[in-house]
């Protein structure tokens, strides 16, 4: 393992940005989903993308990992323009990214061990025994030591997400993306996952980008937060800075107040047709 475990991570430097998004516009057909997003993620921080359903936060994540190509704008990862790369270069960059999917996306036809070992087998020329040891270490790291012979269908939801994290960690990435890590989990398991996200960031000085709508986990894990509404940034900063933000949506989100039912539904329909 290249990244040695350190007891205390260095605090992120003020302007050491690992991800820089500039004027990102994403469209599905005629419909604009993301409209001029600007944001920066510092090296080694936990950056949370927050927003209501359908605000474009998953779309933003898919663009950041290169699963979608934006309509316009740039995404710089470590200073290199991810959107203008050819396939070879994208594959190179992607090896430094890890992603935890909402439904874990483990390959159901393989054991947990094979799932974690897969990127190592495909991307490196390591000995089988070395890969075996590395797989066991990664699984140990997420608290799933001894589970390598199990099939994904035999694990609980929380365990699957942990296994997904182990797989995302397999190549020792610089940045790790989490799509709704606590979705569909009970509060105890979700809290366990939150502390795991923190642990990863502490241990490996890992940059984490987390998409969520759970305020509870945001309070626990977030260094900085961006809040999206209808494809635009309405707030960006630490949680305390965001609390001071007087945008009505931000206040509503923090106060956990419901939309006025009639306008809420009308707004949603409008967002679908606009």
């Amino acid at each position: 393992m290249t990244q040695a475990a350190t007891a205390q991570p260095e605090p992120p430097k003020a302007d050491d940005y690992i991800i820089q998004v500039r004027d990102l516009v994403v469209k599905y057909g005629e419909r604009t989903v993301l409209d001029g997003i600007n944001l920066d993620v510092k090296r080694g921080e936990v950056f949370v993308i927050l927003g209501g359903s359908g605000c474009g936060k998953s779309t933003l994540l898919r663009n950041l990992v290169g699963l979608m190509r934006p309509h316009s704008g740039t995404i710089l990862i470590d200073g290199k323009d991810f959107t203008a790369m050819n396939d070879e270069e994208r594959i190179e960059i992607r090896r430094r990214l890890g992603m935890c999917f909402q439904g874990s996306a483990l390959f159901n036809s393989m054991t947990i061990g094979d799932n974690v070992a897969l990127p190592l087998r495909e991307h490196t020329r390591l000995e089988a025994s070395t890969i075996d040891i590395m797989t066991k270490i990664k699984l140990e790291l997420v608290g799933l030591g001894g589970f390598d012979e199990y099939m994904p269908s035999q694990l609980s939801g929380g365990m699957k997400k942990r296994a997904g994290l182990a797989r995302a960690m397999a190549m020792d990435p610089d940045i790790i993306f989490y799509d709704e890590p606590s979705a569909g989990l009970d509060p105890i398991v979700a809290a366990g996952l939150d502390s795991l996200i923190r642990k990863m960031q502490h241990t490996f000085n890992l940059t984490s980008v987390v998409v969520t709508h759970e305020m509870e986990s945001v309070k626990l894990i977030a260094d900085r937060v961006v809040m999206l509404l209808k494809g635009r940034v309405v707030g960006l900063g630490t949680l305390d800075e965001l609390r001071q933000n007087d945008h009505p949506f931000v206040q509503q989100f923090f106060a956990r107040e419901p939309d006025d039912e009639s306008t809420g539904n009308a707004n949603y329909l409008e967002s679908l047709t606009a």
Partner: peptide, 17 residues
């Protein structure tokens, strides 16, 4: 199809496979 629905195809892409 099942792999696509379960985001497994996306997972392959993200892993650079």
């Amino acid at each position: 199809g099942t792999m696509k629905v379960a985001e497994e195809i996306d997972a392959l892409n993200v892993m650079g496979l």
